[in-house]
C-alpha cells in the first residue's frame, strides 16, 4: 500500500496504490489522518492503482469518512478497478459515497 497526494484546484487528490487489508489498514488510517489534518477538506480518493481491498480496507475508508465529516469536509472516489468496485458494492459504499469514473469529474463535482 502506498499513498501519493496532489493538489488540484481546491481538492486534494490521494492516490492509493497496492493492497489495502488487515495487515496495513491501521497504517493507512494513520497516514490519511496526517494528510487531512488541517488540510483541505475536499478529498478525492483516486483508486486507479488499488489492486485489492478487504473488509479492513472498507472500515478504514468509513473511519476516514467520519473524520472528514466531523470537519465538515467531503470525500469522493474515482477510478475503481472492477474488483474494488465489487467490494464497494457488497459493502454498500456505492450508496453512501459519490464515485466517479475519472479524476476530472470528481474534482469538478467538488468545485461546484
Amino acid at each position: 500500500m502506498e499513498i501519493k497526494t496532489e493538489k488540484r484546484d481546491n481538492a486534494q487528490i490521494i492516490l492509493v496504490s497496492g493492497m489495502l487489508d488487515a495487515s496495513n489498514y491501521q497504517k493507512f488510517e494513520e497516514d490519511i489522518s496526517l494528510l487531512i489534518q488541517g488540510g483541505p477538506d475536499k478529498i478525492v480518493f483516486n483508486l486507479s492503482n488499488l489492486e485489492y481491498m478487504s473488509s479492513a480496507g472498507v472500515r478504514a475508508f468509513l473511519k476516514t469518512n467520519r473524520t472528514i465529516k466531523s470537519k465538515e469536509g467531503v470525500m469522493v472516489f474515482c477510478c475503481l478497478k472492477p474488483f474494488i468496485k465489487e467490494v464497494f458494492e457488497i459493502a454498500g459504499l456505492d450508496v453512501g459515497f459519490k464515485i466517479f469514473a475519472d479524476v476530472e469529474s470528481a474534482v469538478q463535482f467538488l468545485d461546484a
Partner: peptide, 10 residues
C-alpha cells in the same frame, strides 16, 4: 444480495 449498507455507516 445486499439489502442495506454496512452497519454504522449511514
Amino acid at each position: 444480495q445486499r439489502t442495506g449498507t454496512i452497519i454504522g455507516f449511514l
